Computed example of a mutant assay.
Amino acid sequence: MMQVFAEVLRRDLRVGMRQASDWLNPLVFFLMVVALVPLAVSPAPERLQAMAAGIVWIAALLAVLLAMDGLFRSDFDDGSLEQLLLTPAPLSLLVLAKVLAHWLQTGLTLVLVAPVAALLLNLPVAAIPVLCLTLLIGTLTMSLVTAIGAALTVGLRRGGVLVPLISLPLHIPVLIFATAAVQTAMSGLPVSGFLALLAAFLVLALLFAPLAAAAALRLSLSGG
């Protein structure tokens, strides 16, 4: 089973590298939101600093939602998704491999460019590690949860419009506690409690999201 998991992971990483737009588009979108908000609101450093955590996290959330529609779409179009159902490995394990490969190309990329975005928004340097850590945990959690919506709508012609509507309410706790952690770090207070909650959300997502997404895929492919 782990060999099949590794093969699916490697395959999706190779496909993602050949289709650079799948991870470049969310990254460009993320940077555009971060760059345009100061122009629309205010370039005042004090005001930007107060909103920095929320701006970065909202941009990251929207970028993840933008990217996740393609998680199963190409496999559905070329018929390889049906082949995954025929493998001896559990479908939930293969879903986890696909989500992890997708996150390595999109979510991890957002984490790597987050310090640049934070500096553009005048976020204190001391709070940047906390921001990156919340994004590291939170984007993986959001990718796992959004995979459920992507699986439910994979057979629909305009399913990409529905993925954010299905997934967005489930991301609100992550958004709240992640931004609260960064704001607390800016005040110089301990953030371990917020990080523990984010880690708990990630564990729950790792346990239940692949199972739910696998069930949703079977439902979509069966025409039900």
Rank of each mutant, 00 (worst) to 15 (best):
A216D: 06
T106R: 14
V182S: 04
R47G: 07
F76I: 12
L108I: 05
A150F: 01
A97R: 10
A214T: 03
S80I: 03
L96A: 10
P88L: 03
V113R: 04
Q183D: 09
G224S: 13
L211M: 03
L198S: 06
A205F: 08
Q3T: 00
G54N: 03
L108R: 07
H171Y: 08
G224N: 10
V37N: 12
V4W: 14
A185W: 12
L24Q: 06
P129I: 01
M51F: 13
N25F: 08
M17T: 00
S80Q: 09
A6L: 15
N25H: 02
V111A: 07
V163I: 11
L136I: 05
P45L: 14
A215D: 03
A147N: 08
P124N: 07
L202D: 08
A147I: 06
A200E: 11
V4C: 01
A118L: 15
G149A: 03
L36K: 03
L27M: 09
Q105N: 04
I166M: 12
A181H: 02
S92T: 04
F5D: 02
D77T: 04
V4D: 07
V161R: 10
T184W: 05
L152Q: 13
L198H: 07
T184A: 11
L165K: 07
T109C: 14
N122K: 15
G16P: 08
L136S: 05
I128Q: 08
T106S: 13
L13T: 00
P115N: 04
L119V: 08
H171L: 15
A216Q: 09
L104P: 04
S21Q: 07
V182K: 12
P43W: 09
L135H: 01
A35P: 05
A181C: 11
L197P: 02
W23P: 00
V34A: 12
A20V: 08
S187L: 15
G54R: 13
L204A: 13
Q105T: 00
A205D: 00
A209N: 10
L48R: 09
A147V: 06
G70L: 15
F5Y: 10
V113K: 08
L112W: 12
M2Q: 07
V161T: 02
L121V: 11
R18Y: 00
V41F: 13
V99F: 10
V28R: 02
S42M: 15
L86F: 02
L94G: 05
D75T: 01
L24W: 11
P43M: 12
Q183W: 10
G223L: 01
A180H: 09
L65S: 02
P45V: 07
V161N: 06
R157D: 07
R157E: 07
L144V: 07
A59F: 12
M68N: 02
A150Y: 03
L133M: 14
L61W: 10
